[in-house]
Amino acid sequence: MADHDRAARAWRGHAGRRQTRHRRYGRRQPLTDAPPSPCILVCTMDRVSGLCLGCYRTITEITGWSRADDDEKRAILARVTKRRAAP
């Protein structure tokens, strides 16, 4: 089979997928107005504070992010902003 035939078949296989845009580190996010995840792929939990050292979220906030509605995500982002500003 010619290389161009394989490429054409592979391209057709992607036609039904949702459109996405690339964000930092090559991750893909849906094209929506939803708040972006604060994750920066430094996933290490601090034993003392219970916060991720990369995104400043608790494990509960991290695991619940995909199920949270936009208002809850904004509330989490507001808490993250306060945590980052705290000494």
Rank of each mutant, 00 (worst) to 15 (best):
R79E: 15
I76K: 05
H4Q: 06
I76P: 10
D71L: 06
T60E: 14
T81I: 05
M1N: 05
M45G: 00
M1C: 03
R17N: 09
M1H: 11
S49R: 13
C52V: 09
C39S: 10
Y25L: 12
T81Q: 15
H22Y: 06
E72L: 12
P38R: 04
R18L: 04
T20R: 14
L77Y: 03
R67V: 09
K82P: 00
E72A: 14
R6I: 03
T60P: 06
A10C: 07
G50T: 05
P30C: 03
I40P: 01
P87Y: 01
D71Y: 01
G13W: 05
T81N: 13
R21E: 10
E72Y: 05
L31Y: 01
Q29E: 15
L31I: 14
V80E: 00
L31F: 04
V80I: 10
K82F: 00
H14T: 14
R12N: 00
D70C: 05
E61Y: 01
T20Q: 14
A68R: 12
A10K: 13
R79F: 01
G13C: 08
L41V: 08
R6S: 02
W65L: 05
R84V: 10
A15P: 01
Q19T: 09
H22F: 04
K82M: 02
Q19K: 10
C39D: 08
V80M: 02
R6Q: 07
D3S: 08
P87L: 11
S49K: 11
S49N: 03
L41Y: 07
T58D: 08
Q19H: 14
K82D: 07
H4C: 04
G64F: 09
E61Q: 10
S66H: 14
A75M: 07
I62G: 08
R47L: 04
A8V: 09
A68T: 09
Y56I: 01
R21M: 10
A85Y: 02
M45K: 13
A34H: 08
R83H: 06
A68I: 09
L77A: 01
R24A: 12
A34S: 15
D46H: 12
I76A: 03
I40S: 12
P30N: 06
L77N: 12
Y56D: 13
L41S: 09
R17I: 03
D46Y: 12
T81R: 15
Q19R: 13
R47I: 00
R74E: 05
L77R: 12
D5L: 06
G64T: 14
P35E: 01
A10T: 12
G54K: 11
D5C: 00
P35D: 01
T81D: 14
R23S: 05
R6N: 05
D46K: 09
G50C: 02
R57T: 02
D70Q: 12
